[in-house]
Amino acid sequence: MSIIDETVRWLSEPNRWSWTDPAGIPYRTVEHLEFSLLSLAVAALLTIPLALVLAHYRRGEFLASSAVNIGRAIPSFGLIILFWFLASRWDVSTTFWPLLLALVALALPPLFTNTYAGVTSLEQDTVDAARGTGHTELQIMLRVELPLASPVILAGLRVAFLQLVATVAIGAIVNDGGGLGRYIVDGFALGAGGYGEIVAGGIAVIALALVCEGVFALITRFAVPRGLALQHRGRSENPHAVAPDPS
């Protein structure tokens, strides 16, 4: 039997499309998304407010640049194993916390960097105008800088979330859930008889990542005002362009 035949046979099993059976792809997809979204939410709460404040006062530039390098250097699998080892030594549940902490750590660098860069790249005249009209520093951050930096922040959220979706699959090695990655791990455990499950699990992870990419594109399209999105795109294509005089 070829790998394609094994994959089709595995996908055609009666419980494969159940929302309530752990063997079902919909069940594992929801589990995969729950872990990814929870990790993204925790990382965003820890990172975006801090980056917004530091960028507003033009502090933490070294921290922002370091976050880029740290984000590139951190091995996701190594983090998962490290937290799993610490949890097992400290008698903490290894089915939830190791993967969650590893995912949050992976999402922090792109969220911090994009938020900081998005705010510091704004025209200072806009901030000064808001300050001149009587806005407090908090109002400037929330009503001026945060909305104007939203395209860059959303880009950071997209990068972080796609990285999380991919890493949850790896986390199935140390997590009893693991989302769609459970199929890949279980397939390897079966040896030659699990090739169909491995292929199906890999295709499911790729499909989920593509769908999430499309969803984030729609969110960006509808959440960011069209004029601001076009302005940001123009600056990205021509970073040396001079903004037109509003008068």
Score class of each variant (00 low, 15 high):
70 I>Y: 05
125 D>S: 14
62 F>R: 13
114 N>C: 01
51 A>R: 00
104 V>N: 03
126 T>G: 14
239 P>V: 01
240 H>Q: 13
127 V>M: 10
8 V>C: 10
153 I>V: 12
165 V>N: 06
5 D>K: 11
174 V>G: 05
35 F>S: 09
229 A>F: 02
159 V>M: 11
233 R>D: 15
212 C>E: 01
90 W>E: 13
53 V>M: 01
148 L>H: 01
208 L>N: 02
58 R>S: 09
83 F>W: 15
74 I>G: 04
210 L>H: 07
26 P>Q: 13
236 S>N: 06
189 A>W: 02
129 A>W: 00
39 S>W: 04
98 P>A: 12
128 D>A: 07
85 F>T: 15
144 V>C: 11
103 L>Q: 08
25 I>M: 10
216 F>G: 00
218 L>C: 08
124 Q>Y: 01
5 D>S: 15
29 T>H: 04
67 A>E: 04
78 G>I: 06
95 T>W: 09
49 P>N: 09
237 E>C: 07
55 A>G: 06
59 R>I: 08
176 D>Q: 11
224 V>W: 00
193 G>E: 12
12 S>L: 14
205 V>W: 06
137 E>K: 04
247 S>N: 09
219 I>Q: 09
2 S>Y: 14
226 R>H: 12
164 L>W: 03
89 R>K: 10
48 I>Q: 03
237 E>I: 15
235 R>G: 04
178 G>L: 08
54 L>A: 11
110 P>R: 02
190 L>M: 15
20 T>P: 03
171 G>S: 10
210 L>E: 02
4 I>A: 13
145 E>Y: 00
214 G>P: 03
179 G>T: 02
128 D>T: 02
103 L>N: 01
72 R>Y: 15
224 V>Q: 01
57 Y>R: 11
143 R>Y: 04
110 P>T: 05
127 V>E: 14
46 L>F: 12
89 R>S: 14
225 P>A: 12
141 M>I: 11
3 I>N: 12
